[in-house]
Write a protein that binds this DNA or RNA. Structure first.
Lengths: 233, 233
DNA sequence: CGGAACAAAAAGTCAGACTTATATGTCACA
DNA sequence: TGTGACATATAAGTCTGACTTTTTGTTCCG
């Protein structure tokens, strides 16, 4: 996924980024560029570039005469796809997955409503195609094929909403869905009710029924919340 | 706002970032590090650090033998607060404001619902305090004081939701609200109906009525959408 | 016409010297 | 004893120049 080896500084980030987001250095910890450069066996210039990137993600702050200070979690750019991947790869994965699922539950229904009003006929066709693909792979342990169509479905919804902020969450949704299929529970075939809901959403969008598309999508995301035991008492 | 002069590379970014996000260099344009370094009268190392930051925002891509390529808008990390500020400062401001307001309309109601269930008593108190502050400054052209309490109100809601992704949007909401007050319309006193809604949301949260808090907040955000003429036909 | 060898271009890397800001300790003086 | 000015050490910041590596496009030969 993404670009693993885009230079030495990227190699450093692949180690340092996950370490910081995993909490290996508590907030307030101070690192020194020179020491880091030695530890990773790279030149200072390369290490400086890595620090600059971490700084742009608000994971650290570099100050003269002090060093590179690790910032508290509340400062982090948690929407940065790179940060999301790092955190999903670490021990905070479950909590991260919950946060993202709650975000989905807020965004996707609204996106579906907008998609019902704005989707092109091509996007409507894509959507029904995805839904049919989900149906076709909803039994017989064809989890990978199902996932593929599921991800595509939600991507189309988010894109068709016409809102760039929503569209940009396509990758996040993909990570969440993939995570659910690969790491977490779901050894069995997907819930038939969820499959039906996807088909109905596709129908609602095609029928330009925004209110219905939104309501049905809300049902889908509430199902996702329940899977993670995030629910009203 | 933020940190204007955090080194030479920051100074370069303050010029180059807005230029790119404003579309001064169409997607696919190729820049060369050396040329940029000369143009900004900085050393190559400084320019390289700036490029690394732009790369981490997915505004550009740096490839050997090719140069620094400007990426299409759909690749940008539009959730990066820095990118948001750059775009809000440019000619794309109205579109950006619309995108963010739609995002608000999706997130804030759900956040309010969660806040109704999870807010601490201190947060409830803060909320009513903010709402009262809005009421107190809702007439007599006390726009700045009103804005202050409005921003604080929405920040508390987002924070009290207990979701870090929501909490991180506090800054975005602040930018949107500030933008509406300062640049755009709203020379008159705020809509009394909106003020009342804020008070009612505070009441609903204090009363732990999640459904009501969500519904009322949805009314607020729908008002914001209507102000920008984003509405169902 | 196609593939291999070659050359040029631009980013990438490194090492070393120098500059600058600043946290902190010191010391004189009140 | 407390306080302010001043000195100093420290780590980041900057610059330069040489060198390496990858990639692209061209050329030449089969």
């Amino acid at each position: 996924m993404s670009t693993p080896g885009r230079g030495l500084h990227g190699r450093v980030l692949d180690t340092l980024g996950p370490a910081i987001t995993a909490g290996a250095y508590p907030a307030g910890s101070v690192l020194r560029t020179d020491e880091l450069a030695q530890r990773f066996e790279v030149s200072r210039s390369v290490m400086r570039e890595a620090v600059r990137v971490l700084e742009s993600m608000h994971l650290v702050e570099s100050r003269r005469r002090v060093g590179v200070t690790v910032l508290p979690e509340c400062e982090w750019n948690v929407y940065d796809p790179q940060v999301i991947r790092w955190r999903l790869a670490g021990s905070e994965r479950p909590r991260q997955l919950r946060s993202l699922t709650v975000l989905r539950s807020a965004v996707e229904p609204v996106a579906a409503g907008l998609a019902a009003r704005l989707a092109t006929s091509e996007q409507c066709a894509e959507l029904t195609e995805c839904a049919l693909g989900m149906v076709a792979n909803s039994s017989g342990h064809r989890l990978e094929e199902y996932l593929f169509h599921d991800v595509a479905f939600h991507r189309v919804i988010l894109t068709a909403s016409g809102n760039e902020m929503f569209a940009r969450l396509g990758g996040v949704v993909a990570e969440v869905l993939a995570g659910r299929t690969h790491h977490d529970v779901m050894f069995e075939d997907p819930d038939p009710a969820a499959v039906t809901l996807h088909v109905q959403v596709a129908e609602a969008v095609r029928a330009r029924d925004a209110e219905r598309a939104e309501r049905l999508t809300r049902e889908i995301t509430e199902g996702a919340l329940q899977e993670l035991d995030i629910l009203a008492p």
